[in-house]
Design a protein around this nucleic acid. Structure first.
Length: 806
DNA sequence: ACCGCCGGGTGCC
DNA sequence: ACCGCCGGGTGCC
């Protein structure tokens, strides 16, 4: 549904041409209103087509909005219309009113629209026959469960939906069937015919950065029609929406620089700021230019190092909120949080007309409902840029926010984005995907580390060697391991025979977990509860569930929520021991009420039976049992390596990586004992502490730490640990990509030494099997994206069987 | 003539 | 609107 603001906006300003984005207060208010309404447009996901209906648009002579043959129109309810509270307004893509739906039909549609039973869309096929009315083809979309209500509701009022023909439309609720296509969406966007532009930046630009700079300058300066627009005689015509206009469509001054991380996007952007002020002339000193929204302030470092620029860091409680002051700066840097906190109440950042707004790590804003996104969309600027190595995190949906920020019309209004791109693409429409590709191609430059310019790789990284070191368990360790393995094998075999692996998924993971812990260090098992099954008191049940939750979360399996298919956020565990995001499972329960069942095993679930991780346990988790310290074969293997290497070259720095933070704690003792200086980085640390630790480790000072104990998944992709050139992976991960990402933290731009990776794998153990599976994993992951959720889980079961040699 | 028919006025919601 | 609808004028053929 559109908000009242949208309706208000269109009633009052229906004559305003939204297309030319003049900076007049009214226009700005209106486009803001439309954008606000746009973000409330519900997702098209899961919508099915109920049917078509031919209707009439009347009152054309009272309005200026024009529509061409084949053009899509929007239908907007006007409950406040003084002549008819059932009124349905018809508007073209630019929000200009075209007319109204004929009264009787509007009454029927109002019922359907107001009760949220269907979304109605219109296409004008035949064009205007006369100056008074015209036919419109209406299509009704909505949730399957509302289909009959809509068809009957319309029929009762004498309108029979034409449902024939397209009943074969299959809507697949998730989008991963096209995941591969999305992954490739940003591939091959590297041709840049704009040459290489020199820039007077302190740091010399690499050839690919000069290319990017030329491309960015061209996008800011050159007059090119936006995607899908062509000139037809006197008119400009949009081939996707069939809209045509007399005025030249406003071009997008900006785009998405989607180079891989480490290729110097930030540096290139600084070069752009310096070299392309007005009319392709360099920036004269002392002139305001840009606002950049950053996550890491990397920008500041470059700028400071390179040129004399007025740079203001706009954050902290003492920040200068004067518009005049901010306008006098060359660059203003702020964070998404500050921007979001400021927006609304007389935000100076929102009051200034910026020459350029740059979103660093732009993928951070992708949820259109988030405050942060609204704050970003509200910025006024002539030129707009998004820097992101990973513009699509999960699905096509992520792109909307980016296009909306760039104001790529008409897609900055969600309805048109949904109709023209998102729905066709999610429903597997090839043309839709192709349109999306064209769209992205027009505004994006992306190169990967492996891309080549003139036959040469973009960046030459030092060599990387990966070796696996087999670890033999001691006799005692082996005996304990075999005991646990046989016990677990019997349990899992039982589940497989019964076909209840999914129902007992947490147990299975727990068994595997224990075996993996055995491979690292016996003390890792200390907190694991032993007996499973037998239910006793509610308190004991709860305790056991929390135990399982802890195991699942700590298992490093990158457990995903089966509802949203993303990493679990705010994890809760059901009584049947399956882990979901709290909001996801709460929605399932809310929708299905008493009949709610676990999406994985179909056991009954209730809202009050969801168990979450107690806060005090989170704290407790950090402290380890201070029992007497003992060693393990794997600890010995690591220490052997470290001592030998220290003799060979004392200048090497090391990353010691484990999925078990408690294993990292165990390692601290022998490191101290042998006089190794080390720091530690794990997910529990505050942002401030992390920065401090990273700086310490990256320092080249003689007394700087030689080792970083690193938890496998700590830190984002931007984490730069190039001081290290040797990586010890203490235990294998389920997902080889996780290991790769971790290695890439030191094997990246800025690394000067050869990188050596040592993976410790316990011989004849579940770890060896994990490595075997890893080899096929890449393939499996790709297949899984092309299959259903159940198939993915089934392949997981096969993994488990292989791991346990069943 | 409590109808039919004719032709002018008129027109979104 | 070269329509439909409304309501006033009109009334055998």
């Amino acid at each position: 549904m559109f908000s009242s603001r949208w309706r208000f906006g269109l009633d009052r300003y229906s004559e305003v041409d939204l297309f030319t984005d003049r900076y007049e207060a009214d226009v700005e208010t209106l486009s803001q209103a439309i954008r606000a309404a746009a973000s409330e447009e519900p997702d098209a996901d899961g919508s099915v087509l109920f049917g078509h209906l031919k209707g009439t648009v009347v009152g054309l002579r009272y309005y200026t909005g024009v529509v061409n043959q084949g053009e899509m129109v929007g239908l907007v309810r006007q409950p406040e219309n003084p002549y008819d509270r059932n009124a349905v307004m018809v508007a073209n893509i630019y929000g200009n009113q075209v007319g109204h739906i004929k009264r009787e039909l509007a009454a029927a549609m109002a019922h359907v629209m107001d009760n949220n039973l269907a979304k109605v869309e219109g296409v004008v096929h035949s064009g205007t026959k006369n100056t008074f009315t015209m036919p419109v083809m209406l299509s009704f979309w909505g949730k399957e469960e509302n289909k009959n209500a809509v068809i009957e509701g319309m029929a009762r009022r004498g309108y029979k939906l034409n449902t024939g023909g397209s009943s074969a439309t299959v809507v697949i609720p998730f989008f991963f069937q096209l995941k591969n296509a999305f992954d490739n969406l940003f591939d091959g966007l590297m041709e840049s015919k704009d040459g290489e532009k020199e820039a007077s930046v302190g740091t010399p630009l690499l050839p690919h950065q000069k290319q990017a700079l030329s491309w960015m300058c061209a996008r800011e300066n050159k007059s090119v029609l936006p995607p899908f627009w062509e000139k037809r005689g006197e008119l400009y015509y949009n081939s996707l929406t069939c809209f045509s206009a007399k005025e030249i469509p406003e071009r997008i001054r900006g785009g998405i620089l989607a180079d891989d991380m480490g290729l110097g996007k930030t540096l290139t952007t600084i070069a752009l700021i310096l070299t392309n002020f007005h009319n392709g002339k360099p920036l004269p000193v002392e002139t305001f230019v840009s606002v950049a929204v950053c996550e890491c302030h990397q920008l500041e470092q470059h700028v400071r190092a390179n040129v004399k620029l007025n740079v203001y860091l706009y954050y902290g409680s003492e920040r200068n909120r004067s518009k005049a002051f901010l306008s006098s700066q060359d660059v203003v840097i702020t964070t998404y949080n500050v921007l979001s906190a400021d927006s609304g109440n007389k935000s100076p950042l929102h009051g200034i007309n910026w020459l350029r707004v740059v979103l660093d790590e732009g993928h951070v804003v992708r949820n259109p409902n988030a405050q942060m996104s609204k704050a970003v969309l509200g910025l006024k600027a002539q030129r707009r840029w998004i820097l992101s190595g990973t513009p699509i995190q999960n699905s096509v949906k992520d792109l909307w926010m980016l296009l909306a920020f760039l104001r790529l019309k008409p897609f900055d209004v969600r309805e048109w984005w949904n109709r023209v791109i998102q729905r066709p693409v999610t429903q597997g429409d090839r043309a839709g995907l192709q349109n999306l590709q064209t769209l992205v191609k027009c505004i994006t430059l992306r190169r990967t580390k492996s891309s080549k310019v003139n036959g040469r790789p973009l960046v030459s990284l030092p060599e990387k060697a990966v070796c696996v070191e087999q670890v033999e368990l001691s006799q005692t360790e082996r005996e304990e391991y075999e005991l646990a393995r046989n016990e677990g094998k019997n349990t899992i075999r039982k589940y497989v025979t019964e076909g209840t692996v999914l129902r007992n998924y947490a147990d299975v993971l727990a068994i595997l977990m224990r075996l993996r812990q055995h491979c690292c260090h016996p003390d890792l098992l200390a907190k694991t509860s032993s007996d499973l099954g037998k239910t006793s008191t509610p308190a004991e049940l709860r305790e056991r569930l929390i135990d399982k939750l802890r195991l699942v979360l700590a298992s490093g399996s990158d457990e995903e929520c089966s509802v949203c298919l993303e990493s679990v956020h705010l994890p809760v565990i059901t009584h049947c021991a399956h882990v979901y995001c709290r909001p996801c499972i709460a929605q399932v329960i809310n929708t299905e009420q008493e009949t709610a069942r676990c999406p994985l095993c179909r056991s009954e679930i209730k809202a009050n039976e969801l168990v979450e991780f107690p806060q005090e346990e989170m704290e407790e988790e950090k402290s380890t049992n201070s029992d007497k310290w003992r060693t393990s074969s794997k600890v010995q293997a690591l220490m052997g390596n470290l001592l030998r290497l220290r003799c060979e070259d004392s200048s090497i720095k090391y990353l010691v990586v484990s999925q078990f933070t408690r294993f990292l704690s165990i390692l601290e003792a022998p490191l101290r004992e042998h006089g190794f200086s080390f720091v530690r980085l794990d997910g529990t640390m505050s942002q401030k502490k992390r920065t401090q630790v990273i700086q310490e480790f990256q320092s080249s000072a003689a007394d700087s730490p030689a080792i970083m104990l690193l938890s496998l998944k700590a830190g984002g992709v931007g984490l730069n640990l190039t001081a290290a050139s040797h990586v010890f992976l203490m235990d294998p991960a389920w997902n080889p990509a996780t290991e790769e990402q971790c290695i890439d933290r030191c094997h990246r731009l800025g690394q000067t030494r050869k990188v050596v990776v040592t993976k410790f794998i316990v011989k004849d153990s579940v770890e060896e099997n994990m490595v075997k599976i890893q080899r096929q994993k890449q393939d499996l992951v790709e297949k899984a994206f092309g299959s259903s959720n159940t198939e993915r889980k089934t392949s997981r079961i096969d993994d488990i069987k292989a791991l346990m040699e069943l």
